[in-house]
Design a protein around this nucleic acid. Structure first.
Lengths: 206, 206
DNA sequence: AACAAATGTTTCCTATAGTGAATTTATTTA
DNA sequence: TAAATAAATTCACTATAGGAAACATTTGTT
């Protein structure tokens, strides 16, 4: 699945762990709060960070935009967390999106071991990526190696029966209606047990 | 669904964004990975970020230390978040969790309009919450108001037929195999059309 | 191979970040 | 209150980031 993600925008998952997407960040203000919170003067902060007193002053007053180097000195010197200093400027607050995919009318995406049908491909930047898959593989050997990628995955058997192989567990058979939720960093793969290819629903999030 | 989430740890969804990683940083290297991962050339990245191609090249090769301004352009232009920039992608937190739910053996959770069956309840702090639901409601009037909550939702009709009502769209009928992906902030609700209660799979992420 | 097209790097210049010293502003103390 | 001291800001300068274009390198094509 992973290899072609770039080509399919609808396959992109918005990782969106962005903190409270607060306004266009007032880094200076923030820094001042932090320094004050630590009860430090500019001079003391200067000592700790190795940045000139004047530089700190300018940063706090938004007169200059510190370099990454400077920020590293700041964060290590004052022992603060870089990600916190940032805020993603644009809050995408998506609301009201909707995408219906009729049965069998998803976007086909065949591989050697699966016949994927991508769902909700009209929407990009989703938190989840849902798709149905026909499991063509019949045994472990149909794969060259474990499948492994970021995020978590949920799968539900819609039709047929499969064996679910995973790196840290014994293989287990899943029948219609059975489901499994797992960490996708753990190697995993599927094989159909039933005569016909099994049909499953897959949802990924990262 | 929302009202009782606190009581059920397995219903909690990990919003993530925990502080985690300490600044390691080969920023340039990391940026290059990200850009490449997005399948962008320097020129394309330049267009998206508003930073000169040469500047991007220098940043990637650690020849300069970008200013905060530049970094903001980077993160908003490439739609990446800061943790992503600072996280070493190597740290595979292979938790190796796995949770199988056999057909009809999920955790029952009945309401007036739905008969929910929670799946993967052994795991807490998941990115997604999957559950099957029998749709008992037969019409719009069975609800007092729109259902509305944070996150995004994916639903697939397993059995029967339903009408999907939503705040900004006309009602639409969904049959077996049909699915819909929508923003859960948008008011939504379901009613069974079929004689028997319809069975659906639901996955939520926020 | 020879060429063309694209992608990436380096150069050279301007704009701006960073610094120590001078200046101003706040705070303390007599 | 003013003087003394501490703290923060501004000044004048140097160092470095950012941009346009030249240059180099890679990739694809005939």
């Amino acid at each position: 699945m992973t290899d072609q993600q770039d080509i399919y925008p609808s396959m992109t998952i918005s990782t969106d762990q962005s903190s409270e997407n607060i306004a266009p960040i007032k880094l200076g203000e923030r820094l001042k709060e932090i320094r004050r919170g630590l009860g430090l003067t500019l001079e003391e902060a200067s000592q700790k960070t190795g940045l000139a007193r004047s530089t700190l002053s300018k940063i706090e007053n938004e007169q200059i935009s510190p370099t990454f180097q400077a920020m590293q000195k700041l964060t290590s010197g004052l022992d603060i967390n870089i990600p916190q200093l940032f805020a993603t400027p644009k809050k995408v607050n998506t609301t009201g999106r909707r995408d219906i995919t009729r049965n069998e009318l998803g976007k086909a995406h065949p591989t050697s071991t699966y016949e994927h049908e991508l769902l909700a491909t009209q929407l990009s930047n989703k938190k989840m990526m849902p798709f149905k898959s026909l499991v063509r593989a019949r045994s472990f050997d149909d794969y060259s190696d474990w499948i492994r990628h970021d995020g978590e995955e949920f799968l539900l058997v819609i039709k047929g029966e499969i064996t679910f192989f995973s790196e840290y567990y014994e293989p287990v058979n899943l029948s219609e209606g059975d489901s499994v939720y797992y960490d996708a960093n753990m190697g995993h793969m599927l094989a159909s047990v039933s005569e016909d290819d099994a049909l499953i629903l897959w949802v990924t999030a990262s």
